[in-house]
Design a protein around this nucleic acid. Structure first.
Lengths: 194, 194
DNA sequence: CCATTGAACAAATCATTTAAATGTTCAGGA
DNA sequence: TCCTGAACATTTAAATGATTTGTTCAATGG
């Protein structure tokens, strides 16, 4: 089966909306199938089971997010700008995407803060690679302190996940934006040489 | 009722062990009462209900933790040493306390990353005050960059909670210590002037 | 008055059953 | 390769009653 199959993409896109609207339990495989004029039997040609459908759907959503950020970062040249754009666009995407917000609220375990039980490991690894490449560029260009790239990447990604949890999983927004920007400046000062 | 009442302290100490051993549901108020030669009716002289008993118990545990860290910090004079000791002792305490570890694993929501629904708000505020006082001293002594104290305090506390979640709520220990120390150095560089 | 008892009562939990809904498989066909 | 539809397997929901557990409170003694 071709991963770029149109029907397959349509299925993921539709099931994303349904899972967001009704949650995992209330969304039936029949709901998803009929929404795209498919029988539920046929849906099993594309996925192993309901859980697999769900995970492929979330993975699809996370990849869209990652691509959006990656494209924006690649438009910048200066390494500090890249870092700022990375932070800004990551937040901007979710702020403007009610569907993904709802998904995160319904299923906080998507961002589990634990890589060993991470169902979206591959996608998160490629998201972390965006950070990693910026750090490497910064160190290469003598702009950044020569940090331990692997561990600081993991650290920054975890801090980012923490913000997402505080913002969307819990709806704690009191002065969170200020905390985010102050934390960002602290981090940039910690990264910069001199 | 006196909060420093010996029977009351004994009750909290005993129920901490029982809640750690059996979890909230499997621990009955009668278990707690009989463990300290009390009838369950009498226990209601000290607490409103089972939930109240649980929260007073956790609060008791968190305060012991906080006091341990605070005492260690107050032995230092240099502001950077204070900051390092704060980080070190916070982790050391939980590393050596199997009981509190188990409590955290059984009830991840104790560290909720959300201050609005925080059942232990007062205790966490006084924990944050330890950070806040160090930041203020550092800025006063011209050692630290003049950061926004309120928001950076909240930021650092959240990062700390994130580490606790990664360490104890989830059992993800692969290179976590390295990540912690690298993140700590990054933060200290971000705090220091010059 | 403070701390305690024990019995009565209210509420939650558990085990079990049964019906309905939903998830999954698969032989066969376009 | 992609799809159908019916058969089958599994999960969920609701209902019931028994049992445990949580909570209240009048009475009691230090």
């Amino acid at each position: 089966m071709d991963e770029n199959n149109e029907k397959y993409q349509q299925m993921l896109s539709t099931s994303l909306e349904l899972f967001a609207k009704f949650g995992y339990k209330k969304t039936t495989v029949e709901d998803v199938a009929t929404s795209i004029n498919m029988t539920k039997g046929n849906l099993y040609f594309y996925v192993k089971n309901k859980k697999d459908l769900y995970e492929k759907t979330i993975d699809f959503a996370l990849n869209q997010w990652k691509d959006f950020v990656n494209d924006a970062v690649n438009k910048e040249k200066d390494v500090v700008s890249k870092f700022r754009i990375l932070a800004q666009k990551s937040i901007e995407y979710i702020e403007n995407n009610r569907t993904v917000q709802t998904i995160l609220i319904n299923d906080p375990s998507i961002f589990t803060l634990s890589s060993t039980e991470d169902r979206f490991y591959n996608t998160n690894v490629s998201a972390m690679n965006i950070i990693k490449k910026i750090l490497e560029q910064g160190i290469e260009e003598k702009m950044f302190f020569p940090v331990d790239v692997e561990h600081i990447t993991e650290y920054l990604f975890s801090v980012y996940i923490m913000f997402l949890i505080k913002s969307y999983v819990k709806s704690d927004n009191s002065s969170l934006k200020k905390m985010f920007s102050e934390g960002l400046e602290l981090t940039i000062r910690g990264l910069l040489l001199k």
